[in-house]
Simulated scan of single mutants.
Amino acid sequence: MGIVNVPNGLSVSRLFLGASALGLIHAGMFGWALVLFLLAAITDTLDGYVARLLHQETAFGRQLDPMIDKLLIAAVLIFLVAVPGGGVPAWMVAVIVSRELIIQWLRSMMEGKGVAFGAKSAGKLKTVLQCAAIVAALLALAMAPDAPSWVVSARDVLLWAAVLLTIYSGVEYFAAAAPLLREDRAGG
Protein backbone atom coordinates (compact mmCIF):
# COMPACT_ATOMS: atom_id res chain seq x y z
CA MET A 1 0.00 0.00 0.00
CA GLY A 2 1.38 3.40 -0.97
CA ILE A 3 2.04 6.33 1.28
CA VAL A 4 -0.38 8.55 -0.64
CA ASN A 5 -3.75 7.83 0.93
CA VAL A 6 -6.59 9.61 2.70
CA PRO A 7 -5.33 9.24 6.30
CA ASN A 8 -1.85 10.48 5.40
CA GLY A 9 -3.45 13.39 3.51
CA LEU A 10 -5.35 14.31 6.67
CA SER A 11 -2.09 14.13 8.65
CA VAL A 12 -0.31 16.42 6.17
CA SER A 13 -3.24 18.87 6.22
CA ARG A 14 -2.55 19.21 9.95
CA LEU A 15 0.86 20.68 9.08
CA PHE A 16 -0.74 23.43 7.00
CA LEU A 17 -3.39 24.16 9.62
CA GLY A 18 -0.67 24.27 12.27
CA ALA A 19 1.56 26.60 10.26
CA SER A 20 -1.40 28.93 9.75
CA ALA A 21 -2.20 28.83 13.48
CA LEU A 22 1.42 29.78 14.23
CA GLY A 23 1.14 32.78 11.93
CA LEU A 24 -2.03 33.86 13.70
CA ILE A 25 -0.42 33.44 17.14
CA HIS A 26 2.50 35.57 15.95
CA ALA A 27 0.02 38.21 14.73
CA GLY A 28 -1.80 38.18 18.08
CA MET A 29 -4.98 36.76 16.53
CA PHE A 30 -5.52 34.18 19.24
CA GLY A 31 -9.21 33.48 18.56
CA TRP A 32 -8.52 32.54 14.95
CA ALA A 33 -5.46 30.56 15.98
CA LEU A 34 -7.71 28.63 18.36
CA VAL A 35 -10.13 27.81 15.52
CA LEU A 36 -7.35 26.52 13.26
CA PHE A 37 -5.75 24.57 16.10
CA LEU A 38 -9.10 22.90 16.84
CA LEU A 39 -9.46 21.95 13.16
CA ALA A 40 -5.96 20.47 13.25
CA ALA A 41 -6.84 18.48 16.36
CA ILE A 42 -9.94 17.13 14.62
CA THR A 43 -7.81 15.87 11.71
CA ASP A 44 -5.69 14.02 14.27
CA THR A 45 -8.77 12.16 15.45
CA LEU A 46 -9.97 11.53 11.91
CA ASP A 47 -6.76 10.23 10.35
CA GLY A 48 -6.52 7.17 12.59
CA TYR A 49 -10.23 6.45 12.30
CA VAL A 50 -10.14 6.76 8.50
CA ALA A 51 -7.01 4.58 8.30
CA ARG A 52 -8.77 1.78 10.16
CA LEU A 53 -12.05 2.27 8.28
CA LEU A 54 -10.41 2.17 4.84
CA HIS A 55 -7.80 -0.44 5.86
CA GLN A 56 -5.05 2.05 4.97
CA GLU A 57 -2.87 1.60 8.06
CA THR A 58 0.83 1.68 7.14
CA ALA A 59 4.16 1.80 8.94
CA PHE A 60 4.71 5.18 7.26
CA GLY A 61 1.40 6.47 8.64
CA ARG A 62 2.22 5.15 12.12
CA GLN A 63 5.32 7.35 12.06
CA LEU A 64 3.89 10.32 10.13
CA ASP A 65 0.85 10.88 12.37
CA PRO A 66 2.66 11.14 15.72
CA MET A 67 5.54 13.08 14.16
CA ILE A 68 3.13 15.72 12.87
CA ASP A 69 1.34 15.75 16.24
CA LYS A 70 4.65 16.40 17.96
CA LEU A 71 5.64 19.13 15.49
CA LEU A 72 2.29 20.86 15.84
CA ILE A 73 2.13 20.70 19.62
CA ALA A 74 5.79 21.63 20.12
CA ALA A 75 5.63 24.57 17.70
CA VAL A 76 2.42 25.97 19.19
CA LEU A 77 3.74 25.62 22.75
CA ILE A 78 7.02 27.31 21.79
CA PHE A 79 5.10 30.19 20.21
CA LEU A 80 2.91 30.46 23.33
CA VAL A 81 6.00 30.70 25.57
CA ALA A 82 6.99 33.79 23.61
CA VAL A 83 3.63 35.52 24.16
CA PRO A 84 3.83 37.96 27.08
CA GLY A 85 1.32 36.85 29.70
CA GLY A 86 0.62 33.62 27.81
CA GLY A 87 0.96 31.56 30.97
CA VAL A 88 2.96 28.76 29.37
CA PRO A 89 6.22 28.19 31.30
CA ALA A 90 9.29 27.45 29.18
CA TRP A 91 10.39 24.56 31.43
CA MET A 92 7.09 22.74 30.81
CA VAL A 93 7.54 23.11 27.08
CA ALA A 94 11.13 21.86 27.37
CA VAL A 95 9.92 18.71 29.19
CA ILE A 96 7.18 18.09 26.61
CA VAL A 97 9.41 18.70 23.58
CA SER A 98 12.26 16.58 25.00
CA ARG A 99 9.96 13.63 25.67
CA GLU A 100 8.40 13.92 22.23
CA LEU A 101 11.78 13.88 20.46
CA ILE A 102 13.03 10.93 22.49
CA ILE A 103 9.89 8.86 21.93
CA GLN A 104 9.85 9.67 18.21
CA TRP A 105 13.44 8.42 18.01
CA LEU A 106 12.46 5.28 19.92
CA ARG A 107 9.42 4.71 17.66
CA SER A 108 11.60 5.10 14.57
CA MET A 109 14.10 2.58 15.94
CA MET A 110 11.39 0.03 16.67
CA GLU A 111 9.63 0.50 13.32
CA GLY A 112 13.06 0.17 11.65
CA LYS A 113 13.36 -3.25 13.27
CA GLY A 114 9.97 -4.20 11.86
CA VAL A 115 8.23 -3.84 15.23
CA ALA A 116 4.92 -1.98 15.10
CA PHE A 117 5.27 0.63 17.83
CA GLY A 118 2.08 2.65 17.61
CA ALA A 119 0.57 4.93 20.19
CA LYS A 120 -0.38 3.56 23.59
CA SER A 121 -3.42 4.67 25.60
CA ALA A 122 -1.41 6.94 27.90
CA GLY A 123 0.27 8.50 24.86
CA LYS A 124 -3.08 9.19 23.23
CA LEU A 125 -4.47 10.69 26.43
CA LYS A 126 -1.29 12.77 26.76
CA THR A 127 -1.90 14.23 23.31
CA VAL A 128 -5.51 15.03 24.24
CA LEU A 129 -4.35 16.80 27.43
CA GLN A 130 -1.66 18.73 25.56
CA CYS A 131 -4.24 19.85 22.99
CA ALA A 132 -6.70 20.79 25.74
CA ALA A 133 -4.00 22.83 27.49
CA ILE A 134 -3.21 24.64 24.24
CA VAL A 135 -6.91 25.31 23.64
CA ALA A 136 -7.23 26.74 27.17
CA ALA A 137 -4.10 28.87 26.70
CA LEU A 138 -5.35 30.24 23.37
CA LEU A 139 -8.80 30.85 24.84
CA ALA A 140 -7.30 32.77 27.78
CA LEU A 141 -5.24 34.87 25.36
CA ALA A 142 -8.24 35.47 23.08
CA MET A 143 -10.27 36.67 26.08
CA ALA A 144 -7.45 38.74 27.62
CA PRO A 145 -7.38 40.97 29.53
CA ASP A 146 -10.85 39.93 30.73
CA ALA A 147 -10.36 36.15 30.71
CA PRO A 148 -12.39 34.62 33.54
CA SER A 149 -10.31 33.11 36.32
CA TRP A 150 -11.73 29.66 35.60
CA VAL A 151 -10.23 29.76 32.07
CA VAL A 152 -6.81 30.70 33.46
CA SER A 153 -7.12 28.02 36.17
CA ALA A 154 -8.17 25.43 33.58
CA ARG A 155 -5.14 26.34 31.47
CA ASP A 156 -2.80 25.89 34.43
CA VAL A 157 -4.35 22.60 35.58
CA LEU A 158 -4.33 21.21 32.04
CA LEU A 159 -0.69 22.23 31.53
CA TRP A 160 0.36 20.45 34.74
CA ALA A 161 -1.70 17.37 33.87
CA ALA A 162 -0.21 17.32 30.37
CA VAL A 163 3.35 17.54 31.71
CA LEU A 164 2.79 14.79 34.27
CA LEU A 165 1.15 12.45 31.75
CA THR A 166 3.86 13.31 29.22
CA ILE A 167 6.48 12.04 31.66
CA TYR A 168 4.44 8.97 32.64
CA SER A 169 3.72 7.94 29.05
CA GLY A 170 7.38 8.40 28.14
CA VAL A 171 8.35 5.96 30.88
CA GLU A 172 5.64 3.57 29.64
CA TYR A 173 7.06 3.62 26.10
CA PHE A 174 10.57 2.92 27.38
CA ALA A 175 9.27 0.04 29.49
CA ALA A 176 7.61 -1.46 26.40
CA ALA A 177 10.78 -1.04 24.31
CA ALA A 178 13.26 -2.16 26.99
CA PRO A 179 13.09 -5.91 26.24
CA LEU A 180 13.73 -5.25 22.55
CA LEU A 181 16.58 -2.87 23.33
CA ARG A 182 18.13 -5.47 25.68
CA GLU A 183 17.85 -8.13 22.97
CA ASP A 184 19.65 -5.81 20.59
CA ARG A 185 22.44 -5.17 23.04
CA ALA A 186 22.82 -8.86 23.88
CA GLY A 187 22.79 -9.84 20.22
CA GLY A 188 25.14 -7.12 18.99
Rank of each mutant, 00 (worst) to 15 (best):
R99I: 04
I134E: 00
V88S: 10
S108H: 09
Q104K: 02
L101P: 00
P145L: 12
L141E: 01
S121K: 15
L101I: 13
M143V: 07
G86S: 13
V135A: 15
V97E: 01
R107M: 05
A140L: 01
G123P: 00
P145D: 09
I96V: 14
W105T: 12
G87L: 14
V88W: 06
M109C: 09
V95G: 02
A132K: 07
G118W: 04
A119W: 02
L141I: 03
A116L: 10
C131R: 00
G85T: 09
A136E: 01
K120P: 00
G86V: 03
M143L: 15
I134S: 04
Q104Y: 02
D146N: 14
L106R: 05
P89S: 08
S121E: 14
D146F: 11
P89T: 06
A144E: 02
K124L: 01
I96L: 10
L125E: 05
A119V: 14
I96A: 07
L101G: 11
A137P: 00
S121C: 01
A94I: 13
A133D: 04
W105I: 10
I102P: 00
L138V: 11
A94S: 13
A119N: 07
M143G: 00
C131L: 05
A90I: 12
A132I: 07
V115A: 04
E100I: 00
I103W: 02
P89M: 09
A116V: 15
R107T: 05
A136P: 03
D146E: 14
D146Y: 06
W105E: 03
A133R: 00
L106C: 10
V97C: 12
I134Q: 06
R107F: 04
A90L: 15
W105M: 13
L138P: 06
M110K: 12
I103F: 03
L125M: 14
M109K: 15
E111L: 13
A122N: 14
A140S: 12
L129Q: 00
M109S: 11
A90S: 13
W105S: 13
M143W: 11
G112M: 12
T127G: 10
V93S: 11
L125S: 11
K126Y: 04
P84E: 08
R107L: 03
L106W: 05
A144W: 01
G118Y: 01
E100H: 08
M109I: 11
L129K: 01
V95H: 06
A94N: 07
A132T: 08
V95T: 13
S121P: 13
A142Y: 01
V135G: 12
L141S: 05
L139S: 14
V93D: 07
M110S: 07
G85D: 10
A94E: 09
V88N: 12
V135P: 02
I102W: 06
A140M: 08
M110V: 01
A122H: 13
A133V: 03
A122V: 05
P84G: 12
Q130R: 07
A142F: 02
V128D: 06
A133Q: 02
R107S: 01
V97Q: 04
V88I: 15
M143R: 09
I103D: 04
A142T: 04
C131Y: 01
A119I: 12
V88A: 14
A142C: 04
G112K: 09
V128K: 05
M110A: 05
E111Q: 11
A116P: 05
K124C: 00
L101Y: 08
A147G: 05
I102D: 03
G123I: 01
K120G: 15
E111S: 14
V115N: 06
S108M: 09
K113F: 08
V93R: 07
I103A: 01
I103R: 05
